[in-house]
């Protein structure tokens, strides 16, 4: 218990100079409101550009349905990035978990339906893969970007093996096949699922020892460890949570697609990382949060949706996310440039 109190002592009282603190806090508020303004400007511009198609209830549902996937992944990714680590395994985990879910549900390949067990098994696959990444990182001391890069392909391999050589497995139960787009209180199920995950993520980040420890590790791992933060345990738990989020996203993606696919996560990785970074979470760790990521996801989804409605080719969608990612990390790093700063 003393560990926890010392951590909060480190986190809450004033950092060295109150001047610096005031600057940082003001800066944070400014950036956060900047994103809200950007979102409002985008909404206004696209409404004017596409009268009658953009600002409609149907399109709002489409946007929220599209935002669901990056929102779910983004919660896990934010916690990982807050620690100063990175999880590149998202698309592999989504493939493996999505495939598990489809094959254990009623599908066109036959075989019996396992009901809720399919969901449990899919999530378990994600948790296990997250655990694998974490253990490779903490036990073998492999940097997370390499560990999770390897695990990305391990996940894809698992998905390919599960897929086997038979035809594409489609959901045969129509109630499952259209679950994601069915409405509850006027909004799609997928969005409610994502909203629940975001709220959970917010609570974990703000009120639990795990969330606090993640912030502390990202801010300065050495100081955090000296103050009793259990670095290895926190990292393992955060990566397991991130694996679970990716697995849930894999299940959701297969529900949206109505079928199983090894590559159903393609493109999710840099969409999510772009969203986390433009939300204002620092890639160096220690600053940011789940709420900012949710804002970043909405910003990117509205941008992509609005561009496509305005007649821009969907082919450039990944360029939009990529360019926004580049712009966001450059803008975030710009004030910290120094001739002697070492960034790998």
């Amino acid at each position: 218990m003393t560990g926890l109190t010392t951590v909060t002592d480190v986190l809450t009282p004033a950092p060295p100079t109150t001047g610096a603190r005031r600057v940082r806090r003001g800066h944070g508020r400014l950036r956060s409101s900047g994103e809200v303004i950007a979102l409002l400007v985008l909404l206004l511009v696209f409404t004017l550009l596409n009268p009658g198609t953009f600002a409609t209830l149907t399109n709002a549902r489409t946007v929220l349905d599209q935002a669901a996937l990056p929102l779910v992944v983004g919660v896990g990714a934010t916690l990982v990035i807050l620690m100063g680590s990175i999880d590149l395994s998202v698309e592999g985990v989504m493939g493996a978990a999505g495939m598990t879910f489809v094959l254990l549900s009623a599908n066109s390949r036959g075989g019996e339906s396992h009901g809720a067990l399919a969901l449990v098994a899919a999530l378990a696959v994600g948790l296990l893969i997250g655990l694998l990444t974490a253990l490779i990182h903490t036990r073998l001391r492999v940097p997370t970007f390499i560990a999770s890069l390897g695990v990305w392909y391990i996940g894809l391999g698992v998905a390919t093996l599960l897929y086997g050589t038979e035809g594409i497995p489609n959901f045969s139960d129509p109630a499952t096949a259209n679950w994601a787009s069915r409405l509850l209180l006027g909004l799609p199920h997928s969005f409610w699922l994502a909203a629940a995950v975001v709220v959970l993520g917010l609570l974990v980040g703000r009120y639990t020892r795990l969330g606090r420890s993640a912030y502390a590790l990202g801010a300065d791992e050495r100081i955090a460890r000296d103050n009793g933060v259990r670095a290895a345990r926190t990292k393992v738990l955060v990566f397991v949570v991130a694996g679970g989020c990716s697995a849930l996203a894999g299940v959701l993606a297969s529900l949206q697609l109505g079928a199983g696919s090894v590559t159903l996560g393609a493109g999710t990785l840099f969409l999510t990382i772009a969203a986390v970074v433009i939300g204002g979470t620092s890639l160096g760790g220690g600053r940011g949060g789940v709420a900012r990521t949710a804002l970043g996801v909405l910003l990117l989804t509205v941008l992509n949706n609005g561009l496509i409605l305005s007649g821009v080719s969907p082919n450039i969608q990944s360029a939009v996310s990529g360019a926004v990612l580049i712009g966001a990390i450059v803008a975030a790093a710009w004030p910290h440039r120094s001739r002697l700063r070492v960034v790998k």
Partner: peptide, 21 residues
């Protein structure tokens, strides 16, 4: 601009993919 290379090249990966599309 002193940004982490894995994040930057992940961004250019997206741009290049779109370019080839």
């Amino acid at each position: 601009t002193q940004v982490p290379s894995f994040a930057l090249t992940l961004g250019t990966l997206g741009v290049l993919q779109a370019a080839s599309l």
